[in-house]
């Protein structure tokens, strides 16, 4: 019977370790807050171009995670991308004239929405729209523009360099 007890203890330990591993995968490795972020309030922002922004991308303010993109849609009348952002409930004093931009973390990183606080005394509420938006910097456009400028610049500065 001692042996049976020992087996039971070991099996208990095994199941505990297994569940601990599952909990670690859920809490530490993945973002369980994806579940809890059904709370909070939703605002929209319209962009000319959202680049590679997708649902679930983070929303940050001053680099701090304040919410998440919950949906991306296209407005056929304004020909603009409509991005729905869900902001965590504790960030309830974001001015209405806050501007939103789409940035990329690093060269290969993921797109995210960055908010820049405005100065108004009135705050964003559920259903508010962020009107000041800055489109994504699309790498191809940037490179094209850079090459164009470079070519134009080269023409005028040729004499200075040589």
């Amino acid at each position: 019977m001692v042996k049976q007890r020992q087996i039971e203890v070991l099996v208990g330990g095994f199941i505990a370790i297994g569940i601990a591993a599952l909990v670690m995968l859920a809490m530490k490795v993945s973002n369980i807050s994806a579940f809890t972020e059904h709370e909070g309030y939703e605002v929209v922002a319209k962009f000319n171009n959202i680049g590679g922004l997708k649902a679930k991308a983070p929303v940050t303010m001053a680099g701090v995670h304040v919410g998440r993109v919950v949906g991306v849609d296209f407005d056929q009348d304004a020909y603009k991308a409509v991005v729905r952002l869900r902001i965590l409930p504790k960030f309830d004093r974001i001015p209405v004239d806050t501007s939103a931009g789409i940035f990329t973390s690093g060269v290969l990183g993921e797109s995210y929405v960055g908010l820049e606080a405005g100065a108004e005394e009135e705050y964003l509420r559920a259903g508010s729209e962020i009107t000041l938006t800055q489109s994504a910097m699309v790498l191809e456009n940037l490179i094209g523009k850079f090459l164009f400028d470079k070519a134009a610049g080269d023409d005028s500065s040729k004499n200075d360099e040589f």
Binding site: L22, L25, A26, K28, V29, S30, N31, I32, A34, F35, K56, P58, E110
Partner: peptide, 19 residues
């Protein structure tokens, strides 16, 4: 290491599917 992991790994999409 951890924050990048948490922002990329989705509970439903990745962990639950793995399980």
């Amino acid at each position: 290491f951890w924050s990048q992991m948490q922002s990329k790994v989705d509970l439903m999409e990745d962990v639950v599917n793995g399980v």
